[in-house]
Design a binder for these strands. Structure first.
Lengths: 198, 198
DNA sequence: CGGCTTGCTGAGCAACGGTCAGCACGCTAC
DNA sequence: GTAGCGTGCTGACCGTTGCTCAGCAAGCCG
């Protein structure tokens, strides 16, 4: 009686492996709280030994950082307007895309926000970075100051906090739509407009 | 040569111990990311064995839940207006208290928000609960609907999201005060007022 | 003193993160 | 074709951490 043919352990290129491992992390993150996701599990799903994972990512933190960054990059590119969108429409376009993203991914996105904001400082850092990038993106679309520029700091803080407002409201809206989608979008743009009108 | 007199392990009542252990957790939480806080460390500081801690809290999660809830309760009582405050002043009073709280505890509060919102669902639950209670508190002060009542759901969502806005803005303001304290308070009340005027 | 309650401990287990020496696969050189 | 070599990859091992359990010991009653 021969062994039940262990899965053919293919030999991959380094880049391939990294991609595969990060991909598995992206699949697992939404369903598994960060700290319950074990290296064992990831390695098992990838059909490799734990040791190999440590070969590519020196520590668990590094692995999570990579996964979080990958998730953040997905969101960022999704929110970046293509050249076709006229400058005036960009804020509305981005907002619409953001709502669409949350609608589509619901738990996934919430898990990202939660996982990123919570516990581990190294991962929180990636999240913070992403948030700043999104604020830059948004402020660029609004035509306010250059990214990382010397514009009014209060104004920047307001945009950032408006983002927190939006994040929270959209999440609530997805769970319990208390208004139409159009009204939600209108409300959000209106609030932002008023904030910047000061 | 006698052993260096191990600290006299006093025998405490169950309530005392619980309180002591939660107290240690409250001290440690701000400086230590949730998942790096080990039971060993807590037990060591309390001068007891790990086993005893597991006697009072069936698991690490339960312990963290208790600590988080204690932190949340502190905030809640701090934000609850005493009888002396007239109804009309309560919203402003609470807002002022909230800013004061963040000013005083800075990292501590941030760590609470982070730790609570992050990772572990059981702890996030406590945070969610607290947030709802704070919204109730705020809406009560504003004279909008009874707590847990059947008021306009959109309105409630707006108050909640405004809270997220406030949380974020105050945190930014504490790190980098881009305006005076009075202006910050005025801005926040103004934003809330406009949101509710719809 | 004996017996009861209950605060408390130490030894021990399983699971996890992380390390290390070395195997094996696939390539080129002769 | 086979010797050599870079490198993808593994198994065995270690320390720590969450958690269990049988039982000690301190107080309090009769």
């Amino acid at each position: 009686m021969t062994a039940p043919a262990p899965p053919p352990r293919s030999r991959r290129s380094a880049a391939d492996r990294r991609e595969q491992l990060v991909g598995i992390g992206l699949q697992l993150l939404p369903t598994t709280p960060v700290q319950e996701l074990t290296i064992d599990e990831v390695a098992r799903r990838a059909g490799i030994s734990r040791s190999l994972l440590f070969h590519y990512f020196p520590s668990k933190r590094d692995y999570y950082r990579a996964v979080t960054r990958a998730a953040a990059d997905l969101l960022r590119t999704h929110l970046t307007p293509p050249d076709g969108v006229p400058a005036a429409d960009r804020p509305a376009w981005m907002l619409d895309r953001y709502v669409g993203w949350v609608e589509t991914y619901r738990e996934t996105h919430l898990a990202f926000v939660r996982g990123a904001a919570g516990g581990d400082p190294w991962v929180a850092e990636v999240y913070e970075e992403t948030r700043e990038a999104l604020v830059d993106l948004g402020m660029g679309a609004l035509g306010i100051g250059a990214p990382g520029g010397l514009e009014d700091p209060l104004r920047r803080q307001l945009v950032r906090s408006w983002f927190a407002f939006t994040e929270d409201l959209v999440h609530q809206w997805v769970r319990e739509p208390a208004t139409s989608r159009e009204d939600l979008l209108a409300l959000l743009t209106d609030v932002l407009g008023r904030l910047l009108d000061r």
